[in-house]
Simulated scan of single mutants.
Amino acid sequence: MVAFKLLALTTLVACVTAQNATIRYMPFGDSITEIICWRSKLWNKLQGTEWATVNFVGSGKTENNCRDAKYDRDHEGHSGFLAVNIANNKQLDGWLKTNPADVITMHLGTNDLVSGNKPVADIIRAFTTLVASMRTSNPKMKIVVAKIIPVTYTAANTQVQALNAAIGPWAQGLNTTASPIWVVDQYTGFSVSGDLRDGVHPNDSGDTKMMNVWYPALILSMMWGVLLNPDSV
């Protein structure tokens, strides 16, 4: 039994090593995906692991003064964009056509609540449209959706909490084996006084906290793809 487990583990590691170079990962969202440094921190944490060759994809190349010349800057973060508008305008369809992905992380909804005054139900409806776009682009898309970080504005943060509470049941209703949705909690443990630089965007400690939440979910999503679909992540 021990020998079998060792053989299985060896086979899995070999499979992961062979497959991970083909994995295309899209960080998707608004300015909390674009003008931040958690992408740099995430890329650096992947280095030295079997996932070091994962390809970040997207039309954006924003560096945001992270003082890091090495990391893969490709992303699909768009400052000021609303989830509702991205969905209604079918913008993700075009972005994925230009930059196909196998795995997506999504942190979206802040602008809908802070500046757009959109109802939570409309945002959740937009999320459903965005997931449909992801799966149309790639029926085996692995999707990681965040309960979004807090903001300092009390009224908006109450709505952030309401959106976050709705995300879990929504994701469960859309989850499939071929294209799973994992929900990660970027809200809990994130300090509005210590982890934000301007009331909305993470500072360095906030970037580190966000990276540490994304990292295990990203690894799980990539591993899931290798295990279930060894020929096509």
Score class of each variant (00 low, 15 high):
33 T>L: 05
188 T>W: 04
221 S>F: 00
231 D>P: 04
11 T>G: 13
27 P>H: 04
23 I>E: 06
3 A>Y: 05
15 C>W: 06
159 Q>K: 14
2 V>I: 09
196 L>H: 03
61 K>M: 13
152 T>Q: 14
131 V>H: 01
21 A>L: 11
126 A>G: 04
101 A>F: 02
201 H>P: 07
206 G>I: 12
18 A>N: 04
13 V>C: 11
197 R>K: 11
34 E>V: 03
145 V>A: 05
44 N>I: 10
22 T>V: 08
69 A>D: 10
26 M>D: 05
113 L>K: 00
139 P>N: 12
200 V>Q: 02
93 D>H: 06
124 I>W: 04
137 S>H: 09
166 A>T: 07
63 E>K: 14
221 S>W: 00
122 D>Y: 07
225 G>N: 03
156 A>V: 09
168 G>R: 03
225 G>K: 01
110 T>L: 05
36 I>W: 00
142 K>V: 01
25 Y>K: 06
20 N>I: 14
8 A>W: 06
41 K>Y: 11
103 V>N: 02
218 L>D: 03
51 W>S: 00
46 L>E: 06
107 H>M: 12
161 Q>T: 15
87 A>K: 03
36 I>Q: 04
201 H>Q: 10
138 N>S: 02
161 Q>G: 15
17 T>W: 05
120 V>H: 03
87 A>Q: 03
121 A>V: 15
207 D>V: 09
14 A>D: 08
122 D>W: 05
143 I>V: 04
84 V>I: 13
225 G>A: 05
